Simulated assay, not measured.
Amino acid sequence: MTHDAARLQSKDCVVPQWNVSPRVRAFVTTRAGGVSDAPYDGGRPGAGGLNLGFSSGDAPEAVKENRRRALASTGLRHAAWLEQIHGTQVEDAHAVIERLAAGERTRADGSVTDRAGVVCVVMTADCLPVLFCDDDGRAVGAAHAGWRGLVGGIVEKTGERVATLAGVPASKLNAFLGPAIGPETFEVGEEVLDAFVAAASANRRDATKAAFTPTGGAPAKYFADIYALARLRLADIGIDAARIHGGAHCTVTEKERFYSYRRDRVTGRMAAMIWLTD
């Protein structure tokens, strides 16, 4: 495999459209722009895939090259790759990178930093990636929000950590909801609805229930709107709707663009990356 200077093209990424400091850089990868073969390919015949997950079953050398390409697009050499566990642990991204250099992995689902040149990253293939920053680019963070992490508070915890580092109230943060499973394809059982309602603040329980629509098929089955649920949790820490961006994709139905575990089972992983420049 050749290691050329390949970087991702703009069409191979989803970039947040938010009005923040140019110090803040961020993108979410798609399945395109890499070297992985099927079923981790780029979604079109002959197109290499940008699978970034070592645990997916893909060839390790392909994943290494794909990660090199993703990092080359940041202009940096290291990122805070996490061992995600669908939990609520949030770590300092620089500390994660130091542990990786020492051969140690970090089990967590969020990372934050106020240091320039440190990349916060989470991987997904249907779960919701949420990126955070303040207006002036003092701090950034990334959260991996599957339904368990979302109901457990990973979004609030990551946002609050970013706000603390930035020295601003959480209401002054911006959040970007990256590509995730859409509201017409995320089928869940009643236990998921009950978990979200039980965890919701009293004034948001009705809105939380409204994020679940009966499928009309099997009893006690619902389509969950993970984007709406995330917006409610962000509102709980004071982030206004005008500061919440993204949330317009469906990883399941946009087969040529995104990996989806729910759709394919054997599939790759995309990455949501955010960092600060000097």
Rank of each mutant, 00 (worst) to 15 (best):
V35C: 12
R265Y: 14
A248H: 14
I274A: 10
I154Q: 09
F212D: 08
A38W: 11
A218G: 00
G42L: 11
D206R: 01
G43T: 08
I181L: 14
T208K: 02
V192F: 02
R44Q: 08
H78W: 14
R44T: 06
D4M: 00
Y261E: 03
E156Q: 15
G141M: 05
L232M: 01
V24A: 03
V15I: 15
L128K: 01
S73L: 09
T267N: 15
A142D: 04
L76H: 03
G247N: 13
A72N: 12
G43E: 07
R148T: 11
E187G: 03
V20F: 05
G48M: 06
A170G: 10
W275E: 04
S171E: 11
F223I: 03
A70N: 01
E61R: 10
A70P: 02
G217P: 03
P214L: 04
D206N: 07
G217W: 00
G246L: 06
V96M: 06
T208I: 04
A145C: 15
L173A: 05
D37G: 13
V96I: 08
D109T: 08
D58I: 00
W18A: 09
W18T: 08
I85E: 10
V118W: 11
D136F: 10
T88L: 10
G43F: 10
P183L: 00
R263M: 01
G57N: 13
T158C: 14
V63L: 03
M123Q: 15
V188C: 12
L82N: 11
G57Y: 14
A38E: 12
R67T: 06
A108R: 01
G42H: 07
Q89P: 00
N66S: 10
T208H: 03
P39S: 02
G153F: 13
H94A: 15
T29N: 08
D41V: 07
H144R: 14
S36E: 02
L150D: 07
G216K: 00
A5Q: 13
L50Q: 08
V20S: 02
R205Q: 15
A180T: 11
W18K: 07
P45T: 09
A170Q: 01
R99M: 12
A220T: 03
G146Q: 07
A163F: 15
V14R: 09
A198Q: 13
L193M: 02
V197M: 06
G75K: 05
L276C: 10
D194M: 04
R7Y: 00
G53N: 06
K64H: 06
R263Y: 13
S10M: 10
K172W: 01
A220V: 00
Y222V: 04
A166C: 11
L100S: 13
R204Q: 08
S201Y: 03
A199H: 00
N19F: 00
E184W: 02
R105P: 05
V96C: 13
W18P: 04
T251F: 10
Y259Q: 10
E65F: 02
G34I: 03
A170T: 15
A26F: 05
W81P: 09
C250L: 05
A125S: 15
A207K: 05
R138E: 07
V15M: 10
P169K: 05
R99V: 01
S260C: 12
G46F: 07
L82D: 03
D109N: 15
K221R: 15
L50A: 09
L50I: 05
T277F: 04
G141Q: 02
I274G: 11
T185H: 15
K64G: 01
K209I: 00
